[in-house]
């Protein structure tokens, strides 16, 4: 898994590629919390390149979202498709998070 962090005018874009399982999920969590703790007010997580997400990955996302909520930072997800979308739907997270189709839309909102 690799994470590309892109600081933009409207917020920070985190592009996650590869597999987010028990081994790599902590890395995402750390990176995401770093951005949120840095006082960012908007974080967009692009999951287009994510091939697989395990329950540990979901937990990392939940931890990040919870932290964002505490810090008053809005967190949005985009590029959710395929297996990841399936997992999001089944676990009910689709309704919990703000999910938009593309990065552009996320930043336009």
């Amino acid at each position: 898994m690799d994470i590309v962090c892109d600081k933009r005018a409207g917020g920070t874009l985190l592009q996650v590629n590869g597999r987010m399982d028990a081994v790599y999920a902590p890395a995402f969590e750390k990176e995401c919390l770093l951005v949120i703790d840095g006082g960012e007010i908007k974080v967009v997580v692009d999951l287009t390149g994510l091939e697989y997400i395990s329950s540990a990955g979901l937990r990392s996302i939940l931890v990040s979202a919870k932290k964002a909520k505490v810090k008053g930072c809005s967190i949005q997800f985009c590029g959710v498709s395929g297996m990841v979308e399936e997992v999001f739907k089944i676990s009910g997270l689709f309704t919990l998070f703000s999910i938009v189709p593309t990065v552009e839309e996320a930043f336009a909102a």
């Binding site: 939940l62 739907k89 089944i90 676990s91 009910g92 997270l93 689709f94 309704t95 919990l96």
Partner: peptide, 11 residues
């Protein structure tokens, strides 16, 4: 058919 309801323990 899935109900797509949230996992337990979160909220």
């Amino acid at each position: 058919p899935p109900l797509n309801e949230l996992v337990a323990g979160i909220m």
